[in-house]
Design a protein around this nucleic acid. Structure first.
Length: 469
RNA sequence: GCCCCCGUCGUCUAGCCUGGCCUAGGACGCCGGCCUUUCACGCCGGAAACGCGGGUUCAAAUCCCGCCGGGGGUGCCA
């Protein structure tokens, strides 16, 4: 059975890049009818925060992901200890008493001599007596993995192909910190092995960790899983997408009024190509059906808010159901302070206007005239209105007996005025729009007139007329 | 510096493995037109790319070599 996992560290909010990794891991597992695990990698107690963990889980759920198992590494330290002992016993690891200052000095020296830095291996060959003595002195110590000399670790990456790295490129690395907590490279191996993970999907920034982990797998007698290293997501300047490029957290897109379905879909298009045709809009279920690692790209992709925005528009206007649209839009309408008690009214407005905005933030602005009591007319728009006084009074005169039950009926009604007054369409529509919305552009006036109660239409126009004197 | 990864329109990409069907296809964005009560939506059209240099071949985006460019890693972070 295929088992994948998403293993974020709770040191910040869910980043778009990590979200995509999670999505690919999820799609891959679901596609193969396998298991998807969420594992919180919080071995670094200094930087891990509970609030981040909670927001991670919330964002993942919001995106539409679900998992079969959940783990927290901070609760598994006992398990790791056993394996560390095993490595120590068999000589695959050894205690290191070097202090941070000493290591810092080594690093600086290497830099000065312009040679690549590796740990010197000073504590590598301490005798048992020396170790005992140092321990007795109460000296704190970390535990390092003993990297064999001169070996080249080769693995077949499912996306990049064959990757070979000489282990001389890195020295003996730390697997347990001097405070006793295990590090990432160790626990990721133990957990993946114990949890039966068959495919590790992660960002390509982990490629250099992979040989270290393979060494540990071997030392522990585990069979390494398959690896698939996803290309990173870049910002507009082609460097790794980060805060300085703007909003990069999933949460910020939720707050901006993006649908999770659209974000999910868009993220999939970053570095993966659907196999069939030119279609790019796919529901989660379809993505599960067609997702395949062989269609994942090798090269990094630049994140484009414009395209995300476009896709969100597609979802709003033609993909999601009216119920889903209502459910997703409601919080934004509420937050704007619009009255939303009348469910039918809100539904109707949303349905008629869904092609007029691409995010819910934009919707709030666009839909203002549908929800506020009174509209303010900017001073500069009053003058043009003055010339259309007779149009407005004619409108008022005919309003009572008019059938405004649908946008089409409204069109008929307005056409009547245009015809009878012998005017151009614009000479009637424009003043009506300004009088009813206070704006010169926006959602169709026919739509507005068909949903707003007649009393409201009347009062808005009357108010304008009285202002004009 | 060293190691690793990557390189087709501005961006996401198809094509590359299995050379000719590529006058390099699609999408976002952009420009123009149509529709129209403005903007938008929709429809139609357009500009826009094989990083460079060698080779192999009748023929190269596709195969080989070199260069250049970009990115990532180089932690007692993950």
């Amino acid at each position: 059975m295929v088992v994948t996992r998403f293993a974020p560290s709770p040191t910040g909010y869910l980043h778009l890049g990590n979200a995509r990794t999670a999505i690919f891991s999820y799609l891959f597992a679901r596609h193969h009818g396998g298991k998807f695990i969420l594992r919180i990698e919080d071995t670094d107690r200094e930087r891990s925060k509970k609030e981040y963990e909670e927001s991670l889980v919330e964002d993942l759920r919001w995106l539409g992901l679900d998992w079969d198992e959940f783990y927290r590494q901070s609760e598994r330290f006992d398990i790791y200890r056993k394996y560390v002992d095993q490595l120590l016993e068999k000589g695959y690891a050894y205690p290191c008493f070097c202090t941070e200052e000493e290591l810092e000095r080594e690093r600086r020296e290497a830099e000065l001599k312009k040679i690549p830095y590796r740990y010197s291996g000073r504590c590598r060959n301490l005798t048992e007596r020396e170790v005992e003595r140092l321990k007795a002195e109460g000296r704190p110590y970390a535990i390092r993995f003993r990297v064999p000399d001169g070996r080249t670790v080769v693995f077949e990456d499912l996306i990049k192909g064959k990757i070979a790295i000489n282990v001389d490129d890195f020295g003996d690395f730390i697997i347990v910190r001097s405070d006793g907590t295990p590090t990432y490279n160790l626990v990721v191996v133990i957990d993946d092995a114990l949890m039966g993970v068959t495919h590790v999907l992660r960002g390509e920034d982990h490629i250099s960790n992979t040989p270290k982990q393979i060494l540990i797998y071997k030392a522990l007698g585990f069979e390494p899983p398959s690896f698939a290293h996803l290309p990173v997501i870049l910002g507009p300047d082609r460097s790794k997408l980060s805060k300085r490029h703007g909003a990069v957290s999933v949460a910020s897109y939720r707050e901006e009024g993006y649908l999770p379905e659209a974000l999910f879909n868009y993220l999939c298009l970053l570095g993966w190509t659907p196999p069939s045709g030119d279609r790019e809009v796919f529901l989660k279920e379809e993505l599960i059906e067609i997702f395949d690692l062989k269609d994942v790209n090798r090269s990094p992709a630049v994140f484009s808010v414009e395209k995300l925005r476009w896709m969100n528009g597609v979802y709003i206007r033609e993909v999601v159901s009216r119920e889903r649209l209502y459910e997703a839009a409601l919080p934004f309408l509420k937050e704007a302070g619009y009255p939303v008690e009348d469910r039918e009214y809100v539904m109707k407005v949303l349905e008629l206007t869904r092609d007029a905005y691409e995010t819910f933030k934009e919707m709030v602005i666009r839909l203002r005239p549908f929800f506020v009591d009174e509209v303010e007319i900017p001073e500069n728009l009053m003058n043009p209105l003055r010339d259309a006084r007779d149009v407005l009074s004619e409108f008022l005169k005919r309003l009572e007996g008019a059938d405004l039950s649908s946008p089409d009926k409204v069109k008929e009604f307005v056409k009547g005025i245009i015809r009878d007054m012998n005017l151009k369409p614009r000479q009637v529509w424009h003043p009506l729009r300004v009088a009813l919305t206070g704006e010169e552009e926006g959602v169709g006036v026919d739509i507005l007139m068909s949903v707003l109660p007649k009393e409201k239409l009347r009062s808005r126009v009357e108010r304008v007329l009285s202002c004009l004197g």
